[in-house]
Amino acid sequence: MKRVLIIGGGPAGLMAATQLLKSDCEILLLDHKASVGRKFLVAGDGGFNLTHSETPSEFRDKYDSEWIRQTIRQFSNKDWIKFLKQIGVETKIGSSGKIFPADDIKPIQVLNAWKSFLEPKVQFLLNTRFVNFDHKQAVIEREGKSEKMDFDYLVLALGGKSWPVTGSDGAWTAVFEQKMIELTPFQASNSGLVLYENWLGDLEGKILKNIRVTCGNQSCSGDLVCTSYGLEGKPVYAVNGALRKMEKPVFKVDLKPQMSLEKVFEVLKKAKNPSQGLKELKLGEVAIFWIRNFVSKERFLNPKELAKAIKEFPIGIRGFRPIEEVISCAGGVSVSEISASGELNRFPNVFVAGEMIDWDAPTGGYLIQGCVSSGYVSGKAIKLSIMN
């Protein structure tokens, strides 16, 4: 009987195991924490967003990598919802189109249902740390002792580097570097932005409502929260990718996206003075602070120029929040090093899955979906190999 080792008990590892349940193989799932799915549960603290109800093509467009888009073609958001129903987890669609567990179903209940589905076939080895691997053996550490485990197939689902308290500390990168496997350096994703101090004022806790943020070809509407260091909120998370590519990162804020440039200009032109015009536009405290402090006097007194500033307000950033604080990260194993199923080119029958791989996506259910889809393609490839 073939032996499959899966190291990493997050959504990617669990889904890889799920695909092998009907295969003639021994499945061992290892995790270095005392329980599986730690990050899965933490992600559910603020509302357990499992995926999104968009059409498949709209959904795939949210990802930055063709590799991950192709995995989602094989295991889509609709497939994920169907599987959840199979294990007894009903779902609902929120007002924004996001998919959540049905009322009163908590994250731990979703995880327990999944574990119960796996347990008749899968052996869980917890408090077991990954150390190294070669073509036929994985080196692990348990109870302070190192040991080697033989495998026919190995799935590494070791996570990225964000939220290391949950287990995804990126320590595995040293092993991959030794094996000359190309890695893209990890960077914070879906991160709050750190602004220069003169932008902060006395704004901590204030909300900038109903704005639109744009950077390059990335754009997102919503609210922003001012913090002691800068800004948090979905609109700035959505443009992280574009900002990371810029030598001097700058994004633009449309402070009045509900009105065209022409209409904003008309309001300002008819007002007695610029201050009266800003009040009539109902821009709010944060927007007015920025305009008064960072729009030149000449532009402020010119209705046409002030309207342009309101519609395209540029903000430069100092950087991102530390990767240890953010929900996700970009970077990891380069897709040039793997097949469509995540198999390492240099190590046949060794697969990588989930956040180990260099792909990125916004919040809103896309991160979990990317992980389960990549776990699916790895598990499916192993299942087909065993059958053949």
Rank of each mutant, 00 (worst) to 15 (best):
K209E: 15
E266W: 11
A361I: 03
L224S: 07
E66D: 05
K161W: 00
C226H: 09
S162M: 02
V110E: 00
N302V: 09
D358M: 04
D152E: 09
K272M: 04
D45R: 10
G160F: 10
K270S: 13
W359P: 03
N127Y: 03
Q276L: 14
P362Q: 13
F347Q: 12
D223L: 05
I108N: 01
V139P: 01
K297P: 06
E119A: 12
L384S: 13
V131S: 00
D45Q: 12
V239I: 07
E26G: 04
A12T: 10
K33S: 05
L268M: 09
P249A: 13
T363C: 02
P274G: 07
G13M: 08
V165I: 05
L283R: 07
E312A: 10
S373Y: 00
N190K: 05
K78D: 09
I93S: 06
D360M: 08
L255H: 08
S228V: 11
I317R: 06
E147I: 02
G13A: 11
N77I: 01
K252C: 12
G222F: 02
F40H: 08
S191E: 10
Q70L: 12
F313N: 09
L183C: 11
L29P: 08
G277F: 09
A174F: 13
G331K: 14
L50I: 12
G47F: 03
